[in-house]
């Protein structure tokens, strides 16, 4: 009986994979600008990221679309837009050069607050589940791991800090930066036996960062009468001091996510006996 189930399950899985593979190749072979699938062959990276990152004056684009009734994707090159110069243009949709960031923090800031809350709740659940599970010794790290850890983990943490501080300029942001910091701390945890994870420090960083996020959002409510409104001067596109509160929020989110993920991993490694 068990064997029959296994064969049936394998057959169904194989059929699904074949069907998915057919869809995969069909999507890849679609010519660009014809269907709604992603064009792959005719697109250059610089065409998508660098040159068009500045096509953000949504008002003009939407007026054009209303008057012509065309879809934005097909007619993107014909949408009228102001020329935007790096280091000169000001206040183009809150001034952040990375358009993903300007969407995630400006337009969907409340979503970001919710995502941070979801992560917080999942780490609380992990802490609850790990209660009463004892620490198990892991194998002693080898010489290569020890030596590599001592000089690689500071670099990894530094790169994580760079990713979330420059979140409004280059690809990245709070969540990737926090995850990179947590992976650097993971390397410390498994590579250095003398390393003790300071759970009080991580808890205080996490709580203060969460409070700061809500505080920035409430400041927007008081200054501009809207929760999470961008109330700071937005500066010039491409400079570090630009995009208003986007940079502040990403620094806060990066610290919070890094502290949360690192404390979760430390909890899994050490067991939850202390709490």
């Amino acid at each position: 009986m068990k064997n029959t189930n296994f064969v049936t399950g394998s057959f169904i899985a194989l059929t699904l994979v074949v069907i998915l593979g057919i869809f995969f190749f069909q999507a890849l072979n679609q010519p660009a600008h014809e269907g709604k699938t992603m064009p792959v062959d005719n697109v250059h990276l610089e065409d998508r990221v660098s040159l068009h990152y500045v096509l953000k004056n949504v008002n003009e684009a939407s007026q054009y679309l209303e008057s012509h009734g065309k879809s934005y994707f097909n007619e993107r090159d014909e949408v009228p837009s102001k020329t935007i110069e790096f280091g000169k243009s000001k206040n183009l949709e809150e001034g952040s050069a990375n358009e993903v960031t300007s969407i995630v923090v400006n337009y969907r800031g409340f979503d970001t607050l919710g995502e941070v809350t979801v992560l917080f709740i999942s780490i609380i659940g992990l802490t609850l589940l790990m209660r009463g599970i004892n620490n198990k010794k892991i194998r002693e790290p080898s010489l290569i791991l020890k030596t590599g850890t001592t000089f690689l983990s500071p670099l990894i943490v530094l790169f994580g800090i760079y990713v979330f501080v420059h979140g409004h300029l280059t690809p990245g942001g709070g969540f990737p930066g926090g995850a990179i910091i947590a992976s650097g701390i993971l390397l410390l945890i498994i590579g250095l036996e003398s390393f003790q994870f300071n759970s009080v420090l991580s808890k205080s960083i996490e709580s203060l960062a969460g409070l700061a996020f809500v505080g920035i959002a409430l400041a927007g409510l008081f200054v501009k009468k809207s929760f999470l409104a961008n109330f700071m001067p937005t500066g010039t596109v491409g400079y570090l001091y630009s995009a208003g509160m986007v940079a502040l929020i990403y620094i806060v989110v990066g610290l919070k996510v890094g502290a949360e993920l690192a404390s979760g991993i430390a909890k899994l490694k050490e067991g939850g006996k202390n709490d």
Partner: peptide
């Protein structure tokens, strides 16, 4: 999609 790529590399294949 470099944003997604960074996140996937750090979380999907690391943490």
């Amino acid at each position: 999609a470099p944003d997604v790529a960074i996140t996937e590399a750090a979380i999907g294949s690391g943490l």
